[in-house]
Design a protein around this nucleic acid. Sequence first.
DNA 1: CCGCGAATAT
DNA 2: TATATTCGCG
Length: 212
Amino acid sequence: MPDMDGFKLLEHVGLEMDLPVIMMSVDGETSKVMRGVQHGACDYLLKPIRMKELRHIWQHVFRRRIHEVRDIEGYEETQMMRHGLDQSDDGQLFGGGDLTSGKKRKDNENMHDDKDFVDPSLVKKARVVWTVDLHQKFVKAVNQIGFDKVGPKKILDLMNIPWLTSENVASHLQKYRLYLSRLQKENELKASFGGVKQLDLSLRDAAASLGL
DNA sequence: CCGCGAATAT
DNA sequence: TATATTCGCG
């Protein structure tokens, strides 16, 4: 990336993609690390990264998530301002029992022993973006089937786009129908009350309430 | 169980 | 607003 560094990328991701970010760099300068974390990175790991860190990398995301939840719910809990610098190898990423001195750490969700699997609840499924291109295929399929017989499944098949689901199509179809009915409604009104301007709104409402 | 689609949620 | 998810129905 000739014209972008990790920080700029971090900014873009945070702004446009809603993905958790963990920065990695050989540069351990405190200011850089803080900058990364303060700008939304879940953590900042120093290279070379050790296997243990990698194995527990999800905890960085999870820890941050817990903080967010607690903030919202108004928990106070004095969490030491720890930015990413706890390079302490397997260093208790959750700050072990140290912070909450004395209290024993119960089997919190933290204690996850299941090593290697990423919590699916942390991974967001990408939203489908209905680009013009995609929409055109959609419309094409709809017309090809016939307005009356359309269903998400048929459309999906005709569109032939593997990653698309029938739910995606169903959702879009719902919107599409609303859009069409809106057009139709306007046309009907214009047809019967052509030039009338000021009364447009009240007439529409009257017609609607009468079930016309 | 499946496919829909209206309602509702995010 | 755009898209996702839920839920009752046939």
